[in-house]
């Protein structure tokens, strides 16, 4: 796995865990353990996205990294359909 794929997989892992916790919370909104887990994964996801973006630019068009400095850096990374290089 390339570095990029590793960082992307890290983002995917936490995004998935976050979504699963959200599904559980839909049915159990007062569950403290689930809320604590959700918050933890939310943080880890943010960190993983930040780590990816520092190395490979914005992950999403509306990410802050898309306008770092005075350039629209969204165009510098591969387009979504260009896949892994």
């Amino acid at each position: 796995m390339t570095d990029r794929a590793k960082l992307m997989r890290q983002v995917q892992n936490h995004a998935f865990a976050l979504n699963e916790a959200a599904l559980y919370l839909d049915g159990h909104p007062d569950n403290e353990k689930a809320i604590a887990y959700y918050n933890r994964q939310h943080n880890l996801l943010r960190q993983a996205v930040c780590e990816y973006e520092m190395a490979f630019g914005p992950l999403m068009q509306n990410s802050e990294a898309a306008t770092s400095g005075d350039r629209w850096t969204w165009v510098d990374g591969p387009w979504p359909w260009e896949g892994e290089n």
Binding site: R9, Q12, N13, H14, F16, A17, E20, A21, Y24, G27, H28, N31, K33, A34, Y37, Q41, L44
Partner: peptide, 20 residues
């Protein structure tokens, strides 16, 4: 009713398609 118990580590959860 589903009880919040042991859950998978995120990387395993993604592979298995569920956290639970």
């Amino acid at each position: 009713n589903q009880i919040w118990g042991a859950i998978y580590d995120p990387s395993l959860a993604l592979q298995r398609g569920t956290l639970f």
